[in-house]
Amino acid sequence: MKDQFFEKLREILEAEDKEISLDDKFRDYEEWDSLANLSLIATIDDEYGVVIPNDEFKKIETVGALIQAIETRMASL
C-alpha cells in the first residue's frame, strides 16, 4: 500500500518525481494547499473507501501516520 499511496500523493501534489518518506510532514510540502487537502481526502475515499473525519485528520502529521489511519479504518469496515 505504501508505494501506491506515495504515487497517489505525488499525483495530488502534481510533483511526479518528488521524494516521499513515511516521516514527511505532508502539510510542510511546498506544493501543499487547501485544494491538495481536499484532493487527498477525496483520493483516500476513492482508492480505499474510507473517509477520515476532519477532527481526526487534523491531528495526523506524517505520511506514515496517515497510512496507518487509513489501514485502521479499512480494517474496521
Binding site: 487547501s34 487537502n37 481536499l38 481526502i41 477525496a42 475515499d45 473517509v51 477520515i52 473525519p53 476532519n54 485528520f57 487534523k58
Partner: peptide, 10 residues
C-alpha cells in the same frame, strides 16, 4: 470549514 463540510458531504 471546507474540510468539515466536504467530509460531511461524502
Amino acid at each position: 470549514k471546507g474540510m468539515d463540510v466536504f467530509g460531511f458531504s461524502i
